[in-house]
């Protein structure tokens, strides 16, 4: 699942339409939209709101360590970058607390890159700001996001909307900033999603279920379960399957002694001739 945290409805609307997301009923004033693959929450402006929305979306929909979490929205450019330019944030500072966050920069992309400072109030003067971009959410988002997911699953993507000249931004303009960049944004989301889904575990969820079933049906201790899991991993790397466990899948031990004997039997099966001790 891709989780998107966005501040305003007019920013989110192009994505809601594009992915045909439906609104989920909820008790908060942070609208949540989703389909099978994407969940988008509208946080409202500000770091605390962004933080709360991130935590709420993750807990409401449920998440796994293979999900990606992306803060997407508009930002002001300190160095007079062109409007509509997309930027990936490589350093995010909370102006109020001084805390600095460093997102992983693993993905190749064609966008700008730079540092971003999050403020609690709108900024209308670039003087004294050391960052390349400013916004009002990213630092709150990332501080929360890092508590839930691995770093490589967390991204902060901004579209330049102004050069901090204090002008009021119309909804239609904000909509167009995202809408005009929709294809590029979607392609980044896809890459981010692929990165989050990297999983080097050779044990599949079916294998886990099989090992759990054998363990629980035969009253194996936690330690026995983990030993079994590791031996199964070693066996699977060597043989590319766990068919050998089919012979014990229906075993039902009735006492401790039987459990221990079965465990030893499975151990011998999985170790076979492989570990160099026979």
């Amino acid at each position: 699942m891709i989780f998107l945290v966005m501040a305003l409805y007019c920013e989110a609307e192009p994505l809601i339409r594009h992915f045909d997301m439906k609104r989920t009923k909820g008790k908060t004033n942070m609208p949540l939209f989703s389909n099978e693959k994407i969940c988008l929450i509208i946080s409202g402006t500000g770091m605390i709101r962004s933080s709360c929305a991130t935590a709420y979306a993750l807990s409401k929909k449920g998440y796994s360590k293979n999900d990606s979490l992306i803060n997407l929205g508009i930002c002001g450019s300190v160095n007079k970058k062109s409007m509509y330019e997309i930027a990936v944030c490589s350093k995010i500072k909370n102006h109020d607390s001084g805390k600095v966050f460093y997102p992983e920069m693993l993905l190749k992309h064609d966008f700008s890159e730079g540092s971003l400072e999050s403020f609690s109030r709108p900024v209308d003067n670039p003087e004294g700001i050391k960052a390349d971009f400013v916004d009002m959410e990213a630092a709150g988002f990332i501080e929360c996001a890092q508590m839930f997911l691995p770093l490589q699953n967390i991204h902060c993507l901004k579209v330049v909307s102004d050069n901090l000249e204090g002008q009021k931004l119309e909804k239609e303009y904000v909509f167009s900033l995202i809408n005009e960049n929709l294809n590029k944004i979607c392609s980044y989301l896809e890459k981010a999603n692929m990165l989050s889904r990297i999983n080097n575990d050779v044990i599949t969820s079916c294998d886990y279920n099989l090992i759990k079933k054998i363990s629980s049906s035969n009253h194996f201790t936690k330690s026995m379960y983990f030993q079994l899991l590791n031996l199964a991993r070693y066996y699977k790397i060597k043989h590319n399957n766990l068919d050998i466990l089919n012979s014990v899948i229906d075993c039902r031990c009735k006492n401790k002694l039987q459990s221990k004997q079965l465990f030893q039997k499975i151990k011998r099966l999985l170790e076979g001739m492989e570990i160099g001790l026979q």
């Binding site: 490589s90 350093k91 600095v100 460093y102 992983e104 920069m105 693993l106 890159e113 540092s115 890092q146 997911l149 691995p150 770093l151 490589q152 990165l195 990297i198 080097n200």
Partner: peptide, 23 residues
């Protein structure tokens, strides 16, 4: 390379949630 100034190397090196293998 893109250059990013930091206060202390541990701010980047010791972040929680890193994946050694993916990095």
């Amino acid at each position: 390379a893109k250059l990013i100034g930091i206060d202390h190397y541990k701010d980047v090196f010791n972040r929680t949630g890193q994946n050694f293998h993916v990095q």
